[in-house]
Amino acid sequence: MKTFTYERASTPAEAAAASARTPGAKFLAGGTNLLDLMKLEIEAPQHIIDIGKIGLNKIESTPTGGLRIGALVSNTNLAAHPIVRRDYGLLARALLAGASGQLRNKATTAGNLLQRTRCPYFYDTNQLCNKRVPGSGCAAIAGFSRQLGIIGTSTSCIATYPGDMAVAMRALDATVETVKANGAKRTLSLDQLYRLPGQTPHLETTLEKNELITTVVLPPPVGGVHIYHKVRDRSSYAFALVSVGAILKKDGTGRVAVGGIAPRPWRIESAEPLLPSGAKAFTAQLLKGARPTKENEFKLALVERTLAAVLNEAKH
């Protein structure tokens, strides 16, 4: 691990300001992804601002019936919260399908959103990777790509966003509130937060340097059956090959976001009116423009079949 200087912040605004003061600074929340990458020197911040104990660990109801989730609420506490379990089952299910018990205790809500979009070639510092070293090339595209992306990818990068929670958050229309170094605040949808790789796969979000997520806001609950169906190579503690997060009503309408196939949680709102027509019609629209590799083209069928299973489950 490369050397770094360290400070503990005591408020979000102070953390953002401290980040602006120090070149090469990074925020440290749970650290389960950042420290992992720092050990491999893929991440090498020169300064760490530990935000682990700045508050932001509450879950509160909003006046309109939604939920405000502090950026530092752990994955375990979010999944176990009575309101989340009762009204946002999709979110609880997605959280519980991710990582291990140990990691969920440490990982935070905002940290989970900001985990790196990544692939095994990004982790292997002997391989070419445009995300790790911009402009160096991509060894994954012609490499072992079974797990990797089929849509939203580019000629520079086919890594997938590996998280589960954000897939549920995307379907739930969650927004994030941030604070910048000058104290200015703003709100972003997840659609606005996550970038596609294009020719700059090292840039994964639209957050500015020194901008800190303080809260994730869920709108009031959406009625319907909440399902998170994750398909993976082993039944626990593995990334998704494909995951489908859905909220479906009895009449067949609803919303769907898909994980494991793209550089960000994949949701196409304009395709959703096709949901009552069935999995085939909806998936064709959802995956329009997909560019799979030979090794991962099976994901096209897997998305459709997983969705068919979800639609069937919602009817019963």
Binding site: L28, T32, L35
Partner: peptide, 25 residues
């Protein structure tokens, strides 16, 4: 790297991977 769990300890009665945590945290 947080994959095997051999380093599991309890912090404030919750289990975590002690390898993926700085002492300073």
């Amino acid at each position: 790297h947080g994959q095997c769990g051999a380093c599991t300890v309890l912090v404030n009665n919750q289990r975590i991977n002690s390898c993926l945590s700085l002492a300073l945290q």
